[in-house]
Amino acid sequence: MADMVPVEEIADAMFKMIKDAAGKKQYKSMDLQKAMKELYPGRVDKQLCKAAIKQLINSGRCIYTYFGGSYIELPHVEGAANPEQTET
C-alpha cells in the first residue's frame, strides 16, 4: 500500500482549491474529499480528509457556511445574505 499523504498536505491542497474557487464556486466536504482522492490516488481516505477539514476549520483558515446546504469557504465579511436560501 502506498504511503498515505500527511494531513497537513491534504489541508493545504484543499485550501488551495477553496482559495482558487473563492467567489466562483462553493465546495462541500464531499467535493473536497473526492478531489483529494483524484489528486492522490490510493493515498488518502475519508478519515484523513475529515481530519484535514477539521484542521482548516479549527485553525480559522476556513469556515463552514450555509446556503441551502453546508459549504467550506474562506472567512469573509458577514451580511452577504443569499436571497436564494429559503430555509434552515
Binding site: 477539521k54 476549520i57 479549527n58 480559522g60 469556515i63 463552514y64 457556511t65 450555509y66 446556503f67 453546508s70 469557504e73 472567512p75 469573509h76 458577514e78 451580511g79 452577504a80 445574505a81 443569499n82 436571497p83 436560501q85 429559503t86 434552515t88
Partner: peptide
C-alpha cells in the same frame, strides 16, 4: 428577514442559523 449563511461558532458547522 435576510438569511445569513456564514455565522457560527468556532469549529462547528451547525447549530447557528444566521438572520438579519
Amino acid at each position: 428577514w435576510k438569511h445569513g449563511g456564514i455565522v457560527g461558532v468556532m469549529g462547528y458547522g451547525g447549530g447557528v442559523i444566521g438572520r438579519y
